[in-house]
Computed example of a mutant assay.
Amino acid sequence: MRNFMIIEAPSNLGLKELQPGIEPGVKFFPEALRRNDFAEEAGISQIITVPAPPYTMDIDPDTQVRNADAIINYSQLLADKVYEAVNKDIIPIVIGGDCSILIGTALGLRRTGRPYGLFAMDGHHDYMLPEHSGTAGAAGMGLAFVSGNGHPKLSDIAQLSPYIREEHIYAFGNREMDPAYVQPIIDSRISYYDLPAIREQGIPAIIKAFLTMNGQAGLDGFWIHLDVDILDNEIMPCVDSPDAGGLSYEELEEALTPLLASTLFRGMHVTILDPTLDPDNRYTRPFSVWLARLLRKAVTGFTQD
């Protein structure tokens, strides 16, 4: 049996307001999972919370990123907890929050001094720099920052850039197909699979290639970034940037199961579900049950790569 813990990271600092005067509700995601008995159903008893600072709409003049200084400070607090867990051979499941928590989790891995891979499952690729962003939100820039791109205030915290090397990252699931949006990640060294490529190449082949890369590169393991907007909008509409299409629960499970079963799996974070957009728990409850079931299998059993 492997040792798991939950780290609650209720930060909404990486998003802009959906409506004037109403801050993003993703900070309530950990609380919503608590109400749905997520930890108990997943078989995880240890839970800690890293409280987030207050939300503002302020844009930092140096980086042109919203809440940049607060994100940097919060990322270091979150990195402390991830670092402590991984060094104790504990697998953290970090419940966000928005996608800017990727900066803190990747920084925590980097502090170990050992190299890691990243499997980023997201309906958007998040490899964007401030000059291309229409929101100034770090949530859409996380993959760029952790791979050493962008302003050093965010990409080189404690002079540890890159937190994860581009060639050790797989970006899986983007369905925002505007050519100007996708060109930067195509030009990078990230292994990029948009939704059409996933359907064409098949999920098992992509997962196998990622696990093989981890072994060949001599990595200490890998982290999973799971943004719930990778799911089809029909089954997961309570997100900040909904788009038509996406994966089914069955397809996402096909991808996650071998990753969670791998002995190289070191942890994951889950982001962007906004319970304020789901007042009757219609979408949050099925997601909680589904993910808890997958994690319980990982907690109690399988260990094949």
Rank of each mutant, 00 (worst) to 15 (best):
A39I: 01
L226S: 03
M213V: 03
H269P: 10
C99L: 00
D122E: 05
A70T: 09
H125T: 02
R111E: 02
D60I: 14
Q19C: 13
I7P: 04
T257W: 04
A52S: 15
G142Q: 06
G246F: 08
E251Q: 13
I157E: 09
A120H: 10
L102T: 14
M141F: 02
V228I: 15
G25N: 14
S155K: 13
N174M: 09
D229S: 06
P152I: 05
I207L: 08
L256M: 10
F29W: 09
W223P: 03
R282P: 06
L260R: 04
L102Y: 06
R266S: 14
I235T: 09
H125Y: 04
I169K: 02
T263P: 10
L160C: 07
V270E: 03
P54R: 12
R165Q: 10
L13M: 11
H132C: 11
G150P: 04
E254M: 14
D60K: 15
D229Y: 11
A39N: 00
G218D: 00
E234G: 15
L294A: 07
F172M: 01
K88R: 04
P162C: 12
A42P: 05
N12W: 05
V228F: 10
F38C: 00
P196R: 08
F265G: 12
L259W: 05
P162T: 11
L247A: 03
T300E: 09
L109A: 04
I207W: 00
R175C: 06
Q64M: 15
F210T: 03
R285Y: 08
L109I: 08
I95A: 02
F265P: 06
L143K: 08
D240Q: 14
V182P: 01
P258G: 13
R266K: 15
D156L: 11
E250T: 08
K297L: 08
S45C: 13
F287C: 05
F29H: 13
I59Y: 11
S161W: 14
D274F: 12
P24Y: 12
S191I: 12
S100N: 14
L77H: 05
P286Y: 13
N214K: 12
H225T: 00
G142M: 04
R189E: 03
I44A: 05
L219Y: 01
A180K: 03
R66Q: 13
P92M: 08
R282I: 13
L33M: 06
L107G: 01
L107E: 03
A292L: 08
S75L: 11
Y116W: 10
G21E: 00
G173A: 01
D126N: 15
V65R: 09
E40C: 03
P196G: 07
E254C: 08
A52L: 13
G215K: 09
I71A: 07
T271C: 15
R266W: 05
V299N: 01
A209F: 02
A106T: 05
D243Y: 07
S11H: 12
P275E: 07
Y83K: 14
V299W: 09
D305M: 04
P275W: 01
E166G: 10
R199V: 10
G21W: 03
G202P: 02
Y163F: 10
L295T: 03
G123P: 09
S100A: 14
D232Q: 07
E8K: 10
G173K: 05
M128C: 13
I272L: 15
